[in-house]
């Protein structure tokens, strides 16, 4: 009897999260449909055009998508190698003392509000990039510095999840490798890392989702105004940055702008989903199952 109650409670909590997801997708989908029913919108133009200028009636998603992908890629380029390196250090090399010192620092890094990171990007990272690469190369608002700082934001997340995955690999596997005269590095990279890959993939997925959805840093530092460019040192608005900018203030219900927000939200959802599926596929090919 008691078991049955607990089981149904647990089922309900699981169901609740699924229900929420379905509800969000439904709401986004409903409003996005309104967007496409508006006379000035054509689906074909939306998915092919490289101009997004609502005030002139141009609704091509590509400038927003490319800048979202570029800032996310820059962020992951920083967060993944750095996060994994720190995780490997903490799990395979660090003494208990070094760990107890380093982990709180990482947690502080993860706890800084993203708006602070945004101004850090604008007032520190951008001048730094401009002084290294030249003022004519790097715009004041640019995707690169937003992406770099976003990488610093995501790194502790990846470190913490990857370290859990690495620490969960049984000691006996490390001993087997050491017992054959493997060095710490060979053991960490060739035995422990492949065995922990499923947990690390979860870290990568969470990191990518965070990067694609991150709003404040890109809104502050990446630039205001859609711009179709693949140059990371140019300013370009991301999907999230665009939503923030146009939804601030007096947005009237059932206007094109209003409906476009929901379409963009849905698009963001599908980009994250697609990247998740891709990363899972990718990892499944290389992981080594130890249980």
């Amino acid at each position: 009897m008691g078991e049955a109650i607990i089981q149904s409670l647990l089922f309900l909590s699981g169901f609740f999260s699924i229900f929420t997801t379905v509800g969000i997708v439904y709401e986004l989908g409903k409003e996005a449909l309104l967007f496409f029913q508006m006379p000035e919108i054509s689906l074909l133009e939306t998915v092919t055009s490289t101009r997004w200028q609502p005030h002139t009636g141009d609704f091509g998603i590509w400038p927003l998508v490319t800048s979202t992908l570029i800032t996310s890629a820059v962020a992951m380029l920083i967060a993944l190698p750095l996060g994994l390196a720190v995780a490997i250090y903490l799990s395979e090399y660090a003494t208990p003392r070094a760990r107890s010192f380093l982990k709180p620092i990482l947690e502080v890094l993860a706890g800084i509000p993203t708006i602070v990171y945004g101004y850090f990007a604008l007032s520190f990272m951008t001048p730094l990039l401009r002084s290294i690469l030249g003022r004519d190369v790097v715009d004041i608002y640019n995707m690169g510095s937003a992406g770099l700082v976003m990488g610093i934001l995501i790194m502790p997340l990846i470190t913490s999840m990857a370290e859990d995955a690495l620490s969960a690999v049984p000691r006996s596997l490390r001993e087997a490798a050491y017992g054959m005269g493997a060095t710490r590095l060979e053991t960490a990279l060739q035995v422990v890392l492949p065995a922990a890959l499923s947990g690390i993939s979860a870290a990568i997925i969470v990191g990518i989702s965070r990067a694609v959805g991150e709003t404040m840093i890109v809104a502050v530092a990446a630039g205001a105004g859609p711009n179709f460019t693949f140059n990371p040192f140019k300013g370009a608005e991301t999907i999230t940055g665009h939503i923030v900018r146009i939804s601030g203030g007096d947005l009237s219900y059932d206007s094109v702008d209003y409906n476009s927000i929901f379409f963009l939200g849905l698009l963001l959802f599908f980009i994250t989903l697609a990247l998740n599926i891709f990363s899972q596929r990718f990892v499944r090919r290389f992981r080594e199952v130890y249980e």
Binding site: P170, S172, L173, E175, A176, A177, G179, V289
Partner: peptide, 15 residues
């Protein structure tokens, strides 16, 4: 450890 190898109590093949 390269010259003196080891076999453990519980078999621990790599995955």
């Amino acid at each position: 450890r390269y010259r003196i190898g080891m076999v453990f109590q519980i078999a621990n093949p790599f995955p």
